[in-house]
Design a protein around this nucleic acid. Sequence first.
DNA 1: GCCAACGTTGGC
DNA 2: GCCAACGTTGGC
Length: 156
Amino acid sequence: MSTKTKKFWLMKSEPDVFSIDQLETDKKTLWEGVRNYQARNYMMNDMNIGDEILFYHSSTDPSGIVGAATVSQKAVPDASQFNKKSEYFDPKATKEKPIWYCVEVKYKSTFKKALTLHEIKTIEALKDMLVIRKGSRLSIQPVTDKDFNYIVKKHG
DNA sequence: GCCAACGTTGGC
DNA sequence: GCCAACGTTGGC
């Protein structure tokens, strides 16, 4: 017996590598290339089909939340870890014992106007968001339902 | 391009 | 198991 509680996430991507526009074109993508254990564990253990995602553009000007997506498939082994030609290749991983996992992400919407990091920092209701914490480098972060709904209502 | 804040690695 | 050295992220 399982009780399904929808969860909310923020996922970072550098638009030069993979943008919200690319996701809109592709409709779905496997979130390959995560090589951080905490982010992996969120995908592997906590993310379920139907969970809601804020899509964040990092290392760009301006950085910020640019759209929404959903989890469309639970975590599977990240194929890029086995691919010698990939920049994400991990020589320690084997098909019998994969190290890295990725969920499938499905496009939902692009915000008419991005919610920039700078703006988030000025909004009192969003003061506890992890993304505005100094030194917060985690590329997949949990978001509260309160913060998610606030953002989608205002910008989604 | 700089660099603070992290995460990971490896010697001991 | 500690921790210094190194590598990476990502805002600025």
